[in-house]
């Protein structure tokens, strides 16, 4: 917690400084508010760091217990899905992506997974594209 707060604190201070410097080029009217917010944020962050000194060090999460690997895999799959969907379209990528994620989260039980991913895709497609005419990414080749 303590260490985390310090890291966060420094990031926030950096952000406040970047905003302060970044708004230097703005026309006067446009720069007051961002600068005020940056200054307040700087003050609050320092306050937080000071408060932090008196707080007992609590453990927020233990890296050993923290299953970041699966979270990271899911994140990567989602990111790839976003990129591929832009080109290949919604209908093909979605069931594949769903199946992949389900498989990463818990192995086995293919029937349920295939069924639910296909039904989900079809339902979303039906409501958005067919019923409401909201276009989803389509095959773009």
């Amino acid at each position: 917690m303590k260490r985390g707060s310090i890291v966060a604190g420094f990031l926030l201070i950096a952000l406040a400084i970047v905003v302060w410097i970044g708004s230097a080029a703005f026309t006067a009217d446009s720069s007051y508010f961002p600068r005020a917010v940056a200054a307040i944020m700087l003050g609050l962050t320092i306050l937080m760091l000071l408060e932090n000194r008196t707080v007992r060090d609590q453990v927020v999460f233990e890296w050993e217990k923290f299953n970041y690997r699966r979270t990271a895999i899911i994140f990567v799959i989602t990111s790839i899905y976003l990129v591929i969907m832009a080109y290949v379209g919604f209908l093909i990528t979605t069931p594949i992506c769903l199946l992949l994620m389900m498989q990463v989260l818990e192995k086995g039980d293919w029937k349920v997974k295939i069924l639910s991913s296909v039904i989900t895709t079809a339902a979303i497609y039906y409501v958005f594209q067919m019923m409401l005419d909201v276009p989803l990414p389509a095959w773009s080749f």
């Binding site: 976003l82 992506c97 389900m102 818990e106 997974k113 991913s117 989900t120 979303i124 989803l136």
Partner: peptide, 14 residues
């Protein structure tokens, strides 16, 4: 959850 969570991801994206 292993079924629902991926669906939530897709819903968020759409």
């Amino acid at each position: 959850k292993p079924i629902l969570t991926p669906i939530i991801f897709v819903l968020c994206i759409v």
